[in-house]
């Protein structure tokens, strides 16, 4: 009896702890569980913020059927890295320092974060960011993909991204003439 009572109490304590714990558990399409800082998730993702506020977070793992485990791991990794970069922001507000961050460009750590990804992982991550309403991560990933396009001819872009050219020769000629102003330095 003593033991059972103790167990019940522990169960109660665990439930209370889960109700106000500071992480949320997310479940990928292939059933893997990931923990992420609740504060960072709510700040970085409009979808997760809505779920947290609406109480639709499942303590046993909120199902995200559209996101595979590799992409979700990257999402969670990004959120947690962002959460860790808060102290520097607090430091800034305590002394005078003014936001000179370049125009919508990723920060150094964000660049490194996406630079290490394969094409596949990058495309999956950009979709996950889009699905979760993560504006900043979407910009960081889109910026990375844009870097892969910059300075390349249409032919090279097709090659890099494995895009099939479905234009006829005549159509291409027509477009080039129509938009000659954009092509004249080719």
């Amino acid at each position: 009896m003593e033991v059972d009572k103790g167990k019940g109490e522990a169960e109660e304590t665990r439930k209370v702890a889960e109700a106000d714990r500071d992480t949320v558990t997310l479940k990928s399409s292939d059933g893997k569980l990931f923990e992420v800082s609740k504060e960072a998730a709510a700040r970085l993702s409009t979808v997760l913020a809505g779920m947290i506020a609406g109480g639709s977070i499942d303590d046993n793992g909120t199902d995200l059927k559209q996101i595979g485990s590799e992409a979700l791991e990257n999402v969670v990794d990004y959120c947690n890295k962002h959460a860790n970069s808060i102290p520097s922001a607090a430091l800034i507000s305590s002394s005078i320092s003014f936001n000179t961050a370049p125009f919508k460009e990723p920060e150094e750590w964000e660049r490194k974060f996406v630079d290490r990804l394969s094409h596949d992982a990058l495309f999956d991550l950009v979709e996950a960011a889009n699905f979760l309403g993560m504006e900043r991560l979407l910009d960081v990933t889109c910026h990375k993909i844009s870097e892969m396009m910059k300075g390349k001819s249409p032919d090279q872009i097709r090659e890099v991204f494995n895009i099939k050219n479905d234009y006829t020769k005549e159509e291409l000629e027509e477009i080039r003439q129509e938009l000659a102003w954009a092509f004249y330095d080719d």
């Binding site: 889109c142 910026h143 844009s146 870097e147 396009m149 910059k150 300075g151 001819s153 249409p154 872009i157 097709r158 895009i163 099939k164 050219n165 479905d166 234009y167 291409l172 477009i175 080039r176 938009l179 954009a182 092509f183 330095d185 080719d186």
Partner: peptide, 16 residues
């Protein structure tokens, strides 16, 4: 939106 304007325009010939 991250690609400089003349280059972004030229992507119109990549595919339909």
């Amino acid at each position: 939106g991250f690609v400089p304007a003349p280059e972004a325009v030229r992507t119109c010939v990549v595919a339909r």
